[in-house]
């Protein structure tokens, strides 16, 4: 995984075979947690196998980001983290690229999530007037379980521009 970026705006959209079931049915998720995760509209999923086989990690500050999103999400939508409490670990990479993580999100909630992430970046980066790169990956899943993956890597100030692409997915369906 790269620690930094030199792209001002980089968005890659690809077809994806992943959806909520792909993650919920991972072997490291217990039966009890699986039930909880099934009711989620957004899942923050781990990076699997970083440097070490079978390791599960989340980017630095996921804990704060999770609370930030949960506090701003309309009450009829739910977010969860695809990990058992005891297995939760964060990976700190000391480069100036802010990795927000990988999210699996329903088509309906995707624009709300992008808005909240933009707000988060505004709070954490743009207020400090520092130019900083950001990386985030969204797997957007429609009602039939079909999905597309959007990976953004570029300046934090340009992140909001991916809303157009998310809007197009909503209009065209996946």
């Amino acid at each position: 995984m790269k620690h930094e970026t030199d792209k001002p705006y980089g968005l890659v959209i690809t077809d994806s075979s992943e959806n909520f079931d792909t993650w919920i049915n991972r072997g490291y998720i217990s039966k009890e947690l699986r039930q909880d995760l099934k009711n989620s509209n957004i899942l923050i999923v781990p990076i699997e196998g970083f440097r070490v086989k079978d390791i599960l990690v989340f980017p630095d500050q996921t804990e704060g980001l999770f609370t930030f999103i949960r506090n701003r999400l309309p009450s009829d939508f739910k977010i969860n983290v695809c990990i058992e409490e005891r297995d939760y670990k964060e990976l700190i990479l000391h480069a100036d690229l802010l990795i927000l993580g990988t999210f699996v999100v329903t088509l309906i909630v995707a624009p709300i999530l992008v808005n909240i992430l933009s707000e988060y970046l505004k709070e954490k980066i743009l207020k400090t007037n520092k130019k900083r790169g950001v990386k985030v990956s969204l797997t957007i899943v429609d009602e039939k379980g079909r999905s597309k993956n959007l990976t953004y890597e570029g300046d934090a100030e340009n992140f909001g521009r991916i809303m157009n692409e998310v809007g197009k997915l909503n209009e065209e369906q996946i």
Partner: peptide, 24 residues
């Protein structure tokens, strides 16, 4: 240099409670 560090346990410096992902 950019070290890669895996954080397994952390506490809040204000209340000294262990940080839990689902129960902040």
């Amino acid at each position: 240099f950019s070290p890669e560090i895996l954080v397994k346990e952390k506490k809040c410096n204000i209340c000294r409670k262990r940080v839990s992902i689902r129960k902040p």
